[in-house]
Each structure stands twice: as C-alpha cells, then as structure tokens.
Design a binder for these strands. Structure first.
Lengths: 240, 240
DNA sequence: CGGAGTGTTGAAGCCGCTCAAGGACGGTGG
DNA sequence: CCACCGTCCTTGAGCGGCTTCAACACTCCG
C-alpha cells in the first residue's frame, strides 16, 4: 500500500487556491452574502442529480470526483466528462426546467449547491460573477469541442494517451503530481467517454505500458514518458 | 431545375419569426440602441473568422449557411457544427483573447457582428439579454453533448440518419420543408462532422435510399420515411 | 473462503477505412 | 454550343482496427 492508495479524496476548494479549472476563481465569500449555499456530501455511486429532475441549482465541486452522463430515450448512455475540485456542474441545464443529464459521484465528494435563480439575481450585484459564469460556459464548449476533435481524429491508443494527459494536467492544476496518480473511474467509464469498449482501453493501456510510456497497475498510473504520450496524442504542449 | 435549386439562400432573420434556434429571439432593435451592429456578407468559402484572430465580436447568422471547424496544432481538423439563420456564432471564444476555431460560409451568407465588450455592457441595461445569452451557451453545450452521445453510440448509417433528421428539424424551424431540402455542405464536411469518411457517408446515403427511407440525388434530399429514420437513429420524437 | 465486481487476455469477425477508378456536374473558354 | 477541366460524388475490392464473445486473474469484503 502506498501514499496514493491512502489519498482517498481531493482536498477542499478555496478561492485563494489554484486557478479554477473552468470558471476561474469564483468569489464564494461574496456570493454567499447574496445566495444560500448548501453543502452536499455524496458517497461513490450517489447522484448529484438525474436527468429529468427539476432544475434548481448549479454546483461547484468542492472535493471528490464525479462523472456526467448523457442518456438517450432508447437507453443508450455515454459519459461526457469527469469533474473534479473547482469544476462547475449543472451549467448545461441552465435555461431548462429539468436537468438534462446525470451526474454521479465516483468517489466521496462534496459539492456546493448554488441555487440558480438566486445566482442569476446575484449577478446584478456582482458584475464580475456574470462574466465568470459566461466564461465558464464558453470554456465548457471549447472543452467539449476539443474532445470531439480528438474522438473524431485519433485512434484508440491515441485517445487513451490524450485522456491520460488530460488527467495529468488537471491533477497538476489541483496541486497533485502529474506523473503519478490514481484513476477514480473504471475502464468502462473511460471507454464510454472515449467512444471505445473497455477491453480496448485495457489493451491500449497495456500497450502504452509495454512501450514504456506509462506504468499501469489497475487504476494506478505513472507517466514515464509524457513527451512521448504528447507526440502520440498530437499535442505540442508539455506538462511542467 | 426545380424550386429547391433556385432557392439559393435562406430568408433573413427577424425577431418576430420562429423561435430562434439557439438563443430564443434576441431583441435586436433594443440591442442596436446600445451596440453598433455591423452587417457582414460572406461568399461561399469566405471565413467569418479564423482561429487565432483577435476576439472582438460574436455573430448572429442572419442568412445563409456556415460551418464551424476545430483545428489542432498538428493539422488535424474537424467540422464541429453547421450554423444557419438565428444561430449564434463565436460564443465558444468568449473569455479568450483570440478565436478558438474557424467559421466558414458554405453559401452566400449574412452575419450580424455584435461587438463583444459592448454586448456584455448592454446586458446591464437589458437584463433579459444576459439570460438569453447564458441560455444560448447552455443550449450549445447540450447540443454538443447530444452529438457526442450519438457519435459514440451509433453506427455510420445511424449517424447519417440522425444527421438528416437534425437538418430536417432545423429547416422546419426556419419555415422550410422538413421533407425536402438541399444540403449546403459536401460529403466531406458531413463525414468530418460525423466522425466518418466521405465514402462512408455516400454509402450510408445510398443504403438509406435503397431502403426507401430517403431519396438522394447529390445534395438534394427527400425524406420518404421520417419515422423509419427516427427508429433507426434511436429517437422517439416525430417531425411534424 | 467464496462470490461479486473489475480488469486482463485471446481468437474470430465485422464495420468502416484505404486505395483506386470512373461518373456527374458546373464553370470556363474557345 | 461544345470541349475541357476541376471538383464532387459514387462504387468496388481488400484490408485492418476495433469489437465481440469468452475465459480467466485479481482484489476487495462479506
């Protein structure tokens, strides 16, 4: 058993910490003067909300790890993203009477409920909140589009490489090691997100391991050659 | 030569017309009191903007047909969507100094340039503009996610069916026939959008034709069995 | 221990891709 | 008006990557 295995959950969100993944730091202290912020804890497997429930709030992930799932009428399902500390959740349902997707905790998590009409109203008193919110939505679109590009143009192995790099970057942004981390989701969730089957993800991980790019042991990942992964995924930037 | 062939471009946008595809009708008259709106005409192949140009405005499509393209550093490219009358364009770049994608006219088009800092400022005087804008962004996210679900779970033929139904619905919303329309883009653009190759799109269209679901003749499409297409694409709703 | 859940590995098959050729259309210039 | 050209679309044949199906290993927990 190593240090990673005992790191059960991410530390809490604070506005003074690293730049927020999506929205940039939201001034929670100021916001809490205008809206009642409810803290909700979720155990693994619990839903933050489900498609069809009436929309009343967006959420800021304060700790833990969650996935968002898109559902179709005929039962098809797909993971559309993974959320961690600092990410906003629920913004995709703004403007609707009901949430349009499922959000499920993959780990012990805490999310802060920001009741929506009140938040919107608070924007009148906090002009920068409005632009932060809008910027967060735009960022979400860009993020989705970047993945659409990846899923449409990369092979299975390249997608898995890109996925690992994305995880690494986000871990880094939260102050964790980008070279050594635990995946919080199963192979099936990764596969669903990448538009593959879980066996294919396993095989890709095994191959990357054999190529000495990474070391895999179930959910524990060690990046041995991040540059190699980046070349593979067709990305120029480097993880610092 | 038939009626469709002579219908070279879509009629203009007006706030009184059908519900806007993305944002709901924006009150352009009122907005124009606060913001200088510039009308730009584009010929087929011309860019509304390119990735990397400095961001200064979002656009409302007033007439015509455009595509948005995502680009990667290593030259991969993908069409991420098609825009027609009433659609907002450029919102994905809000919060950035530079546009993040390319937008190209596929047809003679007119777009209305809404300078962005001024629009944001106008929101202070037009509170409903802000919520419309936010709702438009959220709608964009849902739209992208719905396609992510489709592309990850449907076969080539099903994707093409879903694509045709989407086109049909959007034509209908603009007051055109949902059963008979002209595709404004080539096979390669459809393929890129659907994560396929152009030959595969051709073959899927040919098969749908043989199955009597549609009639294809180059870019002219006639839906013979919309319900059949819907069942095929795993969607329950009906085009009215 | 045993059983469930999850991850790994193998073998075979299929869907979509690749490569290649030919056809239809639209524009241009003789 | 027709010949020519480039672009777009279509079709075929063969291949390959991912999926499918199946069996087995590992880990966690009762």
């Amino acid at each position: 058993m190593n240090a990673l295995a005992t790191q059960t959950s991410f530390p809490p969100y604070s506005p003074q910490s690293q730049a927020m993944a999506v929205a940039g730091p939201i001034d929670i202290d100021q916001l809490s003067r205008h809206v009642q912020i409810l803290r909700r804890k979720l155990a693994p497997g619990q839903h933050a909300y489900r498609a069809g429930q009436s929309f009343h709030a967006i959420y800021l992930v304060h700790a833990g790890f969650l996935k968002t799932c898109e559902l179709s009428e005929d039962g098809r399902e797909r993971v559309t993203g993974f959320r961690m500390r600092g990410d906003l959740v629920g913004v995709e349902s703004i403007g609707l009477a009901h949430y349009s997707c499922d959000v499920v905790a993959l780990d012990d998590s805490e999310i802060w409920e920001l009741p929506y009409p009140p938040v919107m109203h608070a924007c009148l008193y906090m002009p920068e909140l409005q632009s932060r919110l809008t910027a967060a939505l735009a960022e979400e679109i860009r993020n989705d589009r970047a993945w659409m590009l990846a899923l449409g143009t990369l092979s299975a192995e390249q997608r898995v490489a890109a996925f690992l790099l994305d995880m690494a970057r986000r871990h880094l942004r939260l102050g964790f090691s980008a070279r050594h981390f635990l995946l919080r989701m199963g192979r099936a969730d990764i596969a669903s997100f990448l538009g593959l089957k879980h066996e294919t993800v396993t095989r890709a991980l095994t191959r990357l391991d054999r190529l000495q790019c990474i070391e895999v042991q179930r959910r524990e990942i060690r990046l041995l050659d991040a540059d190699g992964l980046q070349r593979m995924a067709g990305q120029g930037e480097t993880i610092h």
